[in-house]
């Protein structure tokens, strides 16, 4: 098991505005910098990960710690001998900050939600970039990350990931009976590891079948 408290990933203001519902800009008059300042005081980045052997058939994937039926995950892991399974969180402080502003300024709370979402996504992206760089030295490459709830990978698979990574103990990430993660701004994902010459996968959105997604890139 590997545990890391990574440095702050770079901030992407455009993404924050996108998550806040500002399609194509429109940041005028928004207290975005103030929200970033407030968040900076409470964010606590943590990642736990482990590499597992993987075998993927048509619609079934065996990750060593569990088997799951999912054609989409099987496609994502096709040709991979192993997979990186990780969980990341920006900590409970963000949930508390949002709850506080829900009471005094819901619009600020909305922006803080967007900041939190951008932070966890950027954290995962930075983490995967780092892993990819390390893998490149061995002639390997990391596939795009794939989370429970994507495509036909059931959300219930969260339970298996939580058990395998000991998320609660390692990074303070918990799962409710209804499969919600707390802290809320958290991600679990599986990313295949394949030989670097196997060619790059297309962008994550293009892989996904949900054509009516509001965030489709």
């Amino acid at each position: 098991m590997n545990v890391l408290s990574p440095a702050e990933p770079p901030v992407n203001r455009r993404e924050i505005l996108r998550y806040a519902g500002c399609r194509g800009g429109g940041a005028e008059g928004l207290p975005l910098e103030e929200c970033l300042r407030l968040s900076a005081g409470v964010l606590s980045y943590r990642v736990v990960w482990e590499t597992f052997p993987v075998s993927a058939q048509e619609d079934t994937v065996d990750l060593g710690f569990a088997r799951v039926r999912s054609a989409a995950l099987a496609r994502s892991l096709a040709g991979c001998g192993s997979a990186l399974v990780f969980a990341a969180t920006v900590g409970l402080g963000m949930d508390r900050l949002i709850a506080r502003y829900e009471r005094v300024s819901p619009s600020t709370a909305l922006l803080l939600h967007a900041v939190g979402t951008e932070r966890i996504e950027s954290l995962c992206d930075a983490f995967c970039r780092g892993q990819n760089t390390a893998l490149a030295e061995k002639g390997l490459a990391l596939r795009p990350r794939f989370s429970p709830g994507y495509g036909d990978l059931p959300l219930a698979f969260q339970r298996e990931i939580f058990r395998a990574l000991e998320c609660e103990k390692r990074i303070g990430l918990t799962l409710t009976d209804s499969l919600l993660m707390s802290p809320a701004k958290s991600v679990t994902a599986i990313a295949g590891i394949a030989s670097a010459c196997a060619g790059r996968e297309s962008a994550p959105c293009a892989q996904c079948g949900k054509a009516d997604c509001a965030y489709r890139g």
């Binding site: 806040a20 519902g21 500002c22 399609r23 429109g26 005028e28 008059g29 819901p106 619009s107």
Partner: peptide
């Protein structure tokens, strides 16, 4: 009509 975005809508509501 997509000229005002959600955060601005909420600020106006507040």
């Amino acid at each position: 009509r997509g000229r005002v975005f959600l955060p601005q809508l909420m600020m106006a509501a507040e």
